[in-house]
């Protein structure tokens, strides 16, 4: 563990914190373009955050300390996720603290806390959102875990750094099981980030929403932190998808030259990924809430199938 790797580690988190709203803005922009609307500026999410930070917090009488702590916990969990997902380098000093399974656990931790916060005020809305969020979660979480399992069966490790190194820097081989895992991962990320076929990030229509219902009582700086952590989650999932399925461009070592490659590669991949996300959102329609278990159940089974295909086709590879 040298000083440079530590700096790189911190840098990776800072880049994540800074880039996450930009990614959200970019996806929004792409979506409005695709829908023939005039797009908001790219830095709109930053303005939004700044506005919310300056506003006063309006807290319900029944809010408990838990409610006030949750936004900070969310940001902490997402920052931790950004620290262990290899985006700028695979040589991260903090990465051994949590492997892929622990990453799933950290996402689950954030989910449980936000669901609890949704129930804290005691409005019908909040607990409705929490219930739905947990419904999505109990199917999405094992599906995500199975995606990681497929990748770890290939690389014989659950450490994210080792997985990415194996996939990116070993001799080129086609892994059909990753095709299954990729489809499953896409479906899971759509659900986890409250995106269109499962949830609609742009609506406040009570019958359809999940994420927005839970955070309805948040305001001011708390809401800013919740929104920021949502953007961070999208960023983390995007980076995770890129690291697992398009790992090329993430350098192994540290150093300025590697860094000069890594950042543009990351930006380029994120831009393409964000556009594809907007495309999926534009092309699909929001499902009924009880279609969501079916959707996620399919993702789950596809991920399991990926593992089975690995056993059949890639045993020798």
């Amino acid at each position: 563990m040298s000083a440079t790797t530590v700096i790189l580690q911190l840098l990776q988190v800072v880049v994540g914190l800074a880039l996450a709203p930009l990614l959200a803005g970019w996806v929004n922009q792409c979506r409005t373009w695709l829908q023939n609307k005039s797009a908001p500026p790219l830095w709109q999410p930053y303005r939004q955050l700044s506005k919310l930070f300056h506003k006063e917090v309006v807290l319900a009488h029944d809010a408990s300390p838990l409610f006030r702590a949750v936004p900070y916990i969310l940001v902490a969990c997402m920052a931790l996720a950004c620290a262990i997902i290899p985006t700028l380098s695979t040589d991260l000093p903090f990465a051994p603290a949590a492997d892929a399974i622990a990453l799933v656990g950290i996402f689950a931790l954030a989910r449980v806390f936000i669901a609890l916060a949704g129930m804290d005020i005691g409005t019908a809305f909040g607990s409705l959102g929490s219930r739905r969020e947990m419904l999505i979660g109990f199917l999405a979480e094992p599906a995500l875990l199975m995606v990681f399992f497929t990748a770890s069966l290939i690389s014989r490790s659950t450490s994210l750094a080792t997985i990415v190194e194996t996939l990116a820097h070993r001799e080129f081989a086609i892994y059909p099981s990753l095709a299954f895992a990729g489809v499953a991962f896409t479906m899971v990320s759509l659900a986890e980030n409250a995106r269109v076929p499962v949830d609609n990030p742009a609506t406040h229509l009570e019958l359809t929403m999940i994420h927005e219902a839970m955070i309805l009582e948040y305001s001011g700086r708390h809401l800013a932190l919740v929104e920021w952590s949502a953007a961070l989650k999208l960023y983390a999932y995007s980076c995770l998808g890129l690291a697992l399925f398009f790992p090329w461009g993430i350098p192994e070592g540290v150093g300025l030259a590697n860094f000069a490659v890594a950042v543009p590669a990351l930006l380029g991949k994120l831009a393409i990924g964000g556009f594809l996300l907007a495309l999926i959102e534009t092309l699909s329609a929001k499902m009924r809430i009880f279609r969501a278990p079916e959707f996620l159940g399919t993702a789950f089974l596809l991920a399991v199938l990926g593992m089975l295909v690995h056993f059949l086709l890639e045993k020798g590879i």
Binding site: Y72, L80, F94, A97, D99
Partner: peptide
């Protein structure tokens, strides 16, 4: 192959918090 450190995870969460 695999590693996990609950203390580090907790410390990181607490620090960011």
């Amino acid at each position: 192959r695999a590693s996990y450190s609950p203390l580090l995870v907790l410390a990181a969460i607490a620090a960011v918090f």
